[in-house]
Design a protein around this nucleic acid. Structure first.
Lengths: 224, 224
DNA sequence: CGGAATCCCTCAAGATACTG
DNA sequence: CAGTATCTTGAGGGATTCCG
């Protein structure tokens, strides 16, 4: 199972040999959200052939990007996680996410969201993850079947899978939430048009909409 | 020629559908250095099948990332260049380059450098491209057959293909120049061990070595 | 049941020749 | 010069099976 090489002594070429493999970027995205078992990866990556996943995990392990923790004692599952070297890919994944999201308008036919994709998107939207120190707000965000929560506390913003127990505001949204993150749909308009439904203080959603931001590209239809 | 899709409404997935195609990242790297004709791309990407290049260029044009300028009047060549949307990929390409370069030690068997790869690497090494305003230095850099020049002037650092006429220092180097950029081989040691040969004031090479930086990853051999 | 390996098939990509 | 045509190869998709 030899990776494809470009034969160039070049950082980008080396990176391309890894992230240019099909499914690899999405596997890394899911692992960047948190450690995952094989079956969780399969579930979070609809359409991935199991042999491809197994092959990728082995390649990434060989490259020192992913570490495999064999089940020990009561644990009966293999757990995959990013190594430090894998974590170093974070800025590149974020930059790619941001660029790709800039070109994202409506979902294409059949396109779905996953827990990892929403979590990763919200982390990217949080930018450097810094917030005013006096904020202390927990958001539960539901998009379709996906449930994640965002915490703005102690000067930091974090996003993680699942609902929080003590949320201040519950946000139920469809793909229109994308426009809110882009800044092209105001919090108020989003609520009034039914793009999002709130359970809690609407003012907290204003803060959510103002703080999290992944702009649309303004260069989508260049003709010359 | 339908691209492969992941079926996810996710910025990273959208990006992966483009940059995950074989050769695409290297095509974008070459075009990010400057506009190129088809034959120049073929020459700068040893090993690329011409049909693959043609297909990629068409896909990238359809995506609005690359623009094709048909020959007009005296011009007899089609010219490809990045659109504004394509330029927006810059930060992502830089982050990938930096990450990939962090894992780059010795060249693997048969690995080469190209004019675009060296130019792009030096641009990445220049970081934000800001230099002290009183610097005014032109470097010619030769690595194998490749010739590029670096200009530190007016508070900016730029790197471009080819030699400059008015260089203050000419640097002839092998792959060992990588260690200088990483900061693990001092300018003085590089000269003394013959890793680089200078024609001009050695003090200017100190500045070169101190200013351009693409560190090695410190996490290459994680075992747990 | 989680974590793959195996088989088969398709299509993207490689190699090379050729053409407007 | 700037591609297209043709053929070959092999990675990846899909389903099933296997193993601890």
């Amino acid at each position: 199972m030899t990776n494809q090489h470009y034969g160039q002594f070049c950082g980008l070429a080396r990176a391309a040999e890894i992230v240019g493999q099909r499914w690899t970027l999405l596997i890394l995205r899911d692992l960047s959200v948190g450690s995952r078992r094989y079956s969780e990866l399969v579930a979070g990556l609809p359409g991935i052939p199991t042999n491809t996943l197994a092959t990728r995990l082995k390649e990434l392990e060989d490259e020192g990007i992913v570490a495999r923790t064999a089940p020990t004692g009561t644990e009966r599952s293999v757990v995959y996680r990013l190594t430090s070297r894998g974590e170093e890919l974070g800025p590149a994944l974020d930059a790619l996410s941001r660029w790709g999201a800039g070109g994202m308008r409506e979902p294409r036919d059949g396109e779905i969201v996953t827990t990892s994709s929403i979590t990763a998107a919200l982390r990217v939207a949080a930018g450097d993850g810094v917030a005013p120190a006096d904020w202390d707000t927990v958001y539960n965000v539901r998009v379709g079947e996906v449930e994640v929560h965002v915490v703005m506390r102690d000067g930091a913003i974090t996003a993680d899978p699942g609902f929080a127990e003590d949320a201040d505001l519950e946000i139920t949204a469809g793909p229109g939430i994308r426009d809110v993150l882009a800044g092209t749909l105001s919090a108020q308009d989003a609520v009034e048009t039914g793009a999002v439904a709130l359970d809690g203080d609407p003012a907290l959603f204003e803060r959510f909409a103002d703080t999290l931001r992944v702009p649309y590209s303004v260069h989508l239809a260049e003709t010359a």
